[in-house]
Design a protein around this nucleic acid. Structure first.
Length: 115
DNA sequence: TGTTTGACCACGG
DNA sequence: GCCGTGGCCAAAC
């Protein structure tokens, strides 16, 4: 069965466009894709698989905490990946999250399309 | 088919 | 600045 393009693909596409060493939050993606619910971004990433090559470790909650670290395998890999990109993580929280914040609407623009 | 939960966010007190 | 509540959409039970 071939899966048809859904908002999942949009989320994955946006996450893939996140520059290295930058982070974003679910609300920004949800607002950019006009999903209306940031929870959908979490659900989309829940369906995220290693084969999708989606850097989900760059997606954090509004607090800048690694909320999804528990879903990584093994837990802690998320922090390791972020540190590998030069992002300082302390106490499961990104330092200068506000400064490293990457806004899709600012970078990609309103007229950006995944394909 | 209705209820519950989920990698959440915004708002009010 | 922190805590509690509502809302949002989708999937699992």
């Amino acid at each position: 069965m071939k899966e048809q393009p859904t908002y999942y693909d949009l989320v994955f596409a946006v996450v893939r466009e996140i520059p290295r060493g930058r982070v974003t939050n679910y609300g920004a993606i949800a607002d950019f894709l006009a999903l209306g619910a940031s929870r959908m971004v979490g659900w989309a990433l829940n369906n995220c698989q290693p084969g999708d090559r989606v850097p989900a470790h760059r997606v954090l909650n509004r607090k800048g905490e690694l909320s999804g670290r528990h879903h990584f395998n093994p837990p802690g890999l998320m922090q390791q990946l972020l540190e590998s990109e030069g992002v300082v993580v302390e106490n499961d929280q990104v330092v200068d999250f506000k400064r490293l914040f990457w806004s899709p609407a600012e970078a990609l623009g309103m007229e950006w399309e995944p394909f």
